[in-house]
Design a protein around this nucleic acid. Sequence first.
DNA 1: CATCGATGTTGAG
DNA 2: TCAACCTCGATGG
Length: 331
Amino acid sequence: MPEGHSIHRIAIQFRHNFVGHRIAASSPQGRFADGAAELDGRTMLAATAIGKQLFLEFEDDRILRVHLGLYGAWDFAGEISADATIASSNGRMGQTNQRGTLLEQYGEQTPLDFGGSIGAPRRLRMAEQEKEETLDAFPPDPVGAVRVRLLTETAVADLRGPTACEVLDPQQVETVIAKLGPDPLVDAGPEAEERFVRAVRRTTKPIGLLLMDQSVVSGIGNVYRAELLFRARLDPHTPGREVPEETVRALWRDWARLLELGVRTGQMMTKDDLTEEEWSKAMADQQERHYVYKRHGLPSPRGEGDIVIEDMGGRNLYWAPGWQVRPGTGG
DNA sequence: CATCGATGTTGAG
DNA sequence: TCAACCTCGATGG
């Protein structure tokens, strides 16, 4: 159940334990047999996340593009970095990625805390089973419908339930990337913010939809959308062109901040100004990590009234009308 | 045990 | 606008 931060963490995990290694690729489920055969026996050269898209580059210009969708997940096993530190000098996505080096993406090395599985949570029973198998034999037998298994001498990554899983050439990757809005961890620098400002302010579409539009900005999902708008005190229905420029810039910078925090902690922590005690509580209880997401019916944390839920573009939107206002209406 | 909904996207109508 | 994709935790009987 990933938003952008999850995919960046997955990319980091691949850099640690798979990039630079010859990969045995297979499709235990069978639905990706041809694609796996194209990758099998080739060395992984780079792993890059842009928004919710993951690109795994192999030798001979073969790039695996994966989108986890709503419930896809990667499960890692074997010798997997537990206290992952940002890998350095993994190069670029060949000629397909003009968006800067991986080091530029992440700046200084940042300690991370990985579990064995990233993406949708697994059944505990399954995790225990795999743990036992790992002690006995490597690699463990695939559990369930594994679309792709990527295997090194010591590490294994299983992909299940993705929306997209395909082998592309650099040209095709270029086409995909060209349709994506900026990702603060990929497109560092002022041009990215300018792109975002332009994309928002040129349309009358509501800002609540624009933040979810991956061609406007990459990586934001339903949780971050709701929380960013609350933090900005912005009514989700405000047309893009009516959002003050400074507010649009503040949204971009806040997204950059929340995304960095999400990559570092592995949690979508969207609250500010918590005491140490409140922080611990929030990290243990998902409900406590957010101001409005899935908190409809509860009193707004700020201002008057309750948090409400409504449909926007076919997704549940959570917001606090007593706090979030439309600019220029005096509210 | 059955059903529902979900941190997402695509494509048919 | 809505179903389909395909997985699994939460919920209710």
